[in-house]
Design a binder for these strands. Structure first.
Lengths: 136, 136
DNA sequence: TATTATTTTGCAACATTATTGCAAATTTAA
DNA sequence: TTAAATTTGCAATAATGTTGCAAAATAATA
């Protein structure tokens, strides 16, 4: 599915900046931060537009946020079966300390944990740090 | 162990601001962000001092950082057996969507995951979102 | 205890990151 | 093609984080 179709599927206006951001995600292997995207746009679009685009994409379920230990907010493309507000991104995220690239390990499912009495569980995120395949 | 003893144990000068920050952590049940601490200090110490104090504590292993989905950097007290650079914080973190408090579930150990071939694993973080005991 | 050496603090300045309102431009609907 | 709705970019502002440096506080020494 190309960028334009994805936008239409999620009922979003097809605009230059949205197409660019989406294509950047599709080309990038791993997860991207706001500044990653901004630098790849090479000043073509305003910072504010990027912020708003990312927010819109996240709301629609086109991208999902990845938790990080520092304060970088990372985003990555969701799989096709994500819908508004209901993401299926229960995969493990891997942060390589060598190349510093964060990737979604789609094939590794987050294991189930048993919480103490009284806790109701909603969503689980898991981030593994280490050295990736390409850097080992 | 009181705040002063902890500082001494980690060979840190005992200062006003360090004692205050440490006591704030000891009183707080959950994890705290920089701004949480700043507001609890009620302007008694400079912003910069808080940043440096948190950094020092993290380096020494008095506190550890918690990954978050937004860009808030959260810190929480480590258990007593943490040493410089070698933390034993392999427990699950719980973020309550009601009270927005993040707590360390010390009794819940992060489960082991099997990574694809070629990945070397170092450290695993796990954040569970849901409703906590007090808010249910 | 008094003095010196070391460390820490607070201020100022600055850099980065994020948010909001609003008019102009673009996209979609008619 | 035109009108309505949405999106964009600019400006202004807020929040967050960093660095250098002199003054103050703490620790080490005599």
């Amino acid at each position: 599915m190309n960028a334009q179709d994805i936008l239409k599927k999620y009922q979003l206006s097809v605009t230059d900046s949205r197409l660019s951001v989406l294509q950047i995600f599709m080309q990038a292997g791993g997860a991207l931060s706001h500044s990653d995207i901004e630098s790849r746009l090479k000043g073509f679009h305003d910072r504010v537009t990027v912020y708003r685009t990312l927010q819109t994409f996240a709301e629609k379920g086109i991208i999902h946020q990845i938790p990080t230990i520092d304060n970088a907010v990372l985003y990555a493309l969701c799989k096709e079966d994500c819908t508004d507000g209901h993401h299926h991104d229960n995969h493990v995220h891997f942060l390589c300390t060598e190349c510093e690239i964060t990737t979604c390990l789609d094939e590794v499912v987050v294991p189930v944990v048993k919480l103490p009495r009284g806790f109701r569980q909603n969503d689980v995120k898991m981030i593994v740090t280490g050295v990736c395949k390409s850097c080992k």
